[in-house]
Nucleic acid binder design. Structure first.
Lengths: 190, 190
DNA sequence: CGTTGCATGTAAGGTGTTACATGATTAC
DNA sequence: GTAATCATGTAACACCTTACATGCAACG
C-alpha cells in the first residue's frame, strides 16, 4: 500500500505558506488593505520569513477571497480614490488555525549566498573572502538593529502580541548568533 | 540620472545562483554526471544553501553548456548505457570566480515556517506551540548530526577543501545556535 | 521478486519577481 | 518641481517542483 504521502487534512485545499502568512497578518488587525499588508510584511515578516512582492500580495488576497478566507469592502479615500480593505472570515481563521496546528513541520529554508561564495574560496584570494564576510556582517548588523526596534515595538502592545514579541526576540538573537558565527569564521580564516 | 541598478558586470549574462552552485560543484572535481551532482548537492550544499531537484540540475547543466561554461562527453557505462560527464571550462571558471568576487552580496534568505507558526500562536494553545517547537528541535538535531559528519569528511582532504571545511564548521555551529535559540524560546513560553 | 541505486530527461504547473500602467497628494 | 508615499493591479517571465517515462543492475 502506498505510504501516506501528504496527509491532506479534511477539506484542506493546499495553499502556499505565503498565503497563510498574509492571512496571518490579517488575524491580528481588523481590516487591512493590500498596501498596508505590504508595509507590515516588510517591517515584521522579513525577519524570520520573507516579504512577498506587492503584486503577489494582491494575488494572494484574490485567492484568499475566492476561498472565502477573507472578505473585502471598499472604503472611500480622498475624492475619487477608493481603497479595498480585507478582513479575515471565520472560515479563514479556522483554516489558518488548522495550518498552525499541523503536526508536519517543514524545516526552515536557508539560502545563504554569502556562505556559498565562501565555500568557493579556492577560486579567489583570502582577502576577497574576508571582504565579502565583512560586507555580510554589516548587513547582518543592520538587520539586528532593525529587529531590535521591531522587538521594542512589539513589547508595548496588548496580549495578542505575546507571540510576536517572542518571535521578535528569537530573531534578534538569531542575528546576534549569526554575527558570532561570522566572527568565528573570520578568525579561522587566518 | 537613473541610479545604478544591477551593475551588470562586463559581459555577464545573469544566471541564477543555482547555476553557480552547480558550476561550483564542478570546480572541485574533475568530471561529474548530473546524477553525481545531485548526490553531492544533497550531501553538502543543503546545509547552507539548498538542494535543487534532479530535473533542475539537468536543466542547469544544459544552460551552462550553452554558455560554454562546461563541456561534456559521454563515457560508456555498462553494455549499452552511457553516462554524460561534465567538466568546467576556463570560461566557466572565470565566470564563477567573477561571481564569487562580486562585491554586491545578497543577504541570506531565511524562510522559517516553524517560527511563522509560532508567530501565530494566539490562534492555538501553548501546548501546540511547544509541540511544534520540539518537533522543529528534533529536525534541527538531525541536521546538526549530519553536518557534523560532513565536517568530519571535509576534514581529511586536500588543500582545496579548506574552505568547504570552514563552511561545514559554520553550518555545524549554525545548527547548534538554532538549538539554543529554540530552547530559549521554549523556556520563555512559560 | 521487490526495492533501491544508477542514469537521464520531458512536461506541466505552481510560485514569485520585475516591469509597466495610472494618478493623486504630500514633502523637500 | 522632483521625489516619495499612497494605492491597485496586469503581463511577462524566470525559477523550481512534481510527476512521468524508461530501463538495467545489485541486493535482500
Amino acid at each position: 500500500m502506498a505510504a501516506a504521502r501528504k496527509e491532506p487534512r479534511s477539506n484542506d485545499i493546499t495553499i502556499p505558506a505565503t498565503a497563510y502568512a498574509v492571512l496571518g497578518l490579517l488575524s491580528f488587525e481588523q481590516e487591512l488593505s493590500g498596501y498596508d499588508l505590504k508595509k507590515w510584511a516588510d517591517s515584521i515578516l522579513r525577519f524570520f520569513y520573507w516579504a512577498p512582492a506587492v503584486s503577489q500580495i494582491y494575488g494572494e488576497l484574490k485567492r484568499l477571497d475566492r476561498l472565502g478566507y477573507v472578505t473585502s469592502r471598499e472604503v472611500p479615500q480622498d475624492d475619487l480614490r477608493n481603497k479595498r480593505v480585507y478582513r479575515i472570515t471565520d472560515s479563514g481563521r479556522a483554516a489558518l488555525t488548522e495550518w498552525v496546528e499541523q503536526d508536519d513541520v517543514e524545516p526552515p529554508v536557508l539560502k545563504h549566498s554569502p556562505l556559498l561564495r565562501v565555500w568557493l574560496g579556492h577560486l579567489t584570494t583570502p582577502d576577497h573572502i574576508r571582504e565579502l564576510l565583512l560586507s555580510h556582517r554589516a548587513n547582518t548588523e543592520q538587520m539586528l538593529e532593525d529587529a531590535r526596534k521591531s522587538e521594542a515595538q512589539a513589547h508595548n502592545n496588548p496580549e495578542q502580541w505575546h507571540y510576536p514579541e517572542l518571535v521578535a526576540r528569537f530573531s534578534m538573537r538569531h542575528f546576534e548568533a549569526e554575527l558570532g558565527l561570522v566572527d568565528a569564521l573570520l578568525a579561522e580564516l587566518d
